[in-house]
């Protein structure tokens, strides 16, 4: 199946975390599990926070890969990807919790529901992700790939500009 990977369509928006801003507070996990499961339980959240070191924090959820390895990996065709939004949709009747998709995901963005024994993947809250709304540091953004690149350019330009000005002895 040597297909050439297509780029993620320009219109798809995903939840992206800026590790420079992420403080590791896990509020995204709380609001996700409350929204989707009506309880607080990080194990039932579709987004997970990881702290490797006090200086290294990040939250990760579905990256909307295209083509999506999880969809390819599923032996029961339980997963399909929306062409409109890129969201991976799960057919609970077909999924038997075999977890091949979890293995296929490079980002650890898929979890097995502890009780229902079916997998859970971020559904972007119908286009208005709660985690992005509640992140107190605005570390999470709901963003297209082009805007992501634009944001990175602005950040790096600011940084370079600040360094150059400081080198010239001008306080900014």
């Amino acid at each position: 199946m040597a297909s050439v990977p297509a780029a993620r369509p320009a219109k798809w928006k995903l939840v992206d975390c800026d590790p420079d801003k992420c403080t590791g507070c896990t509020i995204c996990e709380y609001i996700c599990s409350l929204t989707k499961e009506d309880v607080f339980n990080a194990h039932k959240s579709r987004i997970r926070t990881t702290r490797l070191h006090p200086l290294v924090n990040i939250s990760i959820t579905c990256r909307l890969c295209s083509p999506a390895p999880c969809v390819t990996a599923c032996p029961r065709d339980s997963l399909t990807q929306s062409e409109e939004t890129g969201v991976i949709m799960i057919d609970d009747d077909k999924c038997d919790g075999c977890s091949w998709c979890i293995e296929a995901c490079d980002y650890g963005a898929i979890t097995l529901h502890p009780e229902k024994k079916v997998v859970r993947i971020c559904d972007l809250c119908d286009g208005d992700p709660e985690c992005v709304k509640w992140c107190p540091e605005e570390a999470l953004d709901f963003i297209t790939r082009d805007l992501m690149a634009q944001k990175a350019r602005i950040t790096v330009t600011k940084k370079l500009f600040k360094e150059a000005m400081e080198a010239a002895g001008i306080k900014v």
Binding site: T23, G24, C25, P54, L55, N57
Partner: peptide, 17 residues
Amino acid sequence: VAKIIGCNSCAMRCEHI
């Protein structure tokens, strides 16, 4: 100070590393 991080559930974050 290299980064300011936060505790679980905190919306203010104070921990200066």
